[in-house]
Amino acid sequence: MLLNQFLLLGAVLFGTGVYGVLTRRHTVLVLMSIELMLAAVNINLVAFGAFSGSVAGQVFALFVLTIAAAEVGVGLAIVLLIFRNLHSSDLDDVDVLKG
């Protein structure tokens, strides 16, 4: 197996995630896109870990997973709060700071 096949897969997933973050209106979908990006990063980490023969890649992927879980927890709490206050889960409606 080539190292690059995993890295390129990660790159494509990351790009897809970025696209999702930029264009999705539903807050939960944006969070999902962020998860996509994190998953892409994880693939890179694990691939490099396997490539270099060290467990560091796996360990870092574990940390990323943990942090992603925490992020989703807080993120969804924020989504719920937004929904409760604005009665919408549309990010375009969250523009109170508009200049």
């Binding site: 197996m1 790159a11 790009g15």
Partner: peptide, 23 residues
């Protein structure tokens, strides 16, 4: 456009950097 450009840059970079490195 931005996402595709990003993937393009990343891909080009990776191909350039690791070429045929085997795991």
């Amino acid at each position: 456009v931005v996402a595709v450009a990003l993937v393009g840059i990343l891909g080009a970079l990776l191909v350039d950097a690791f070429e045929d490195t085997e795991i």
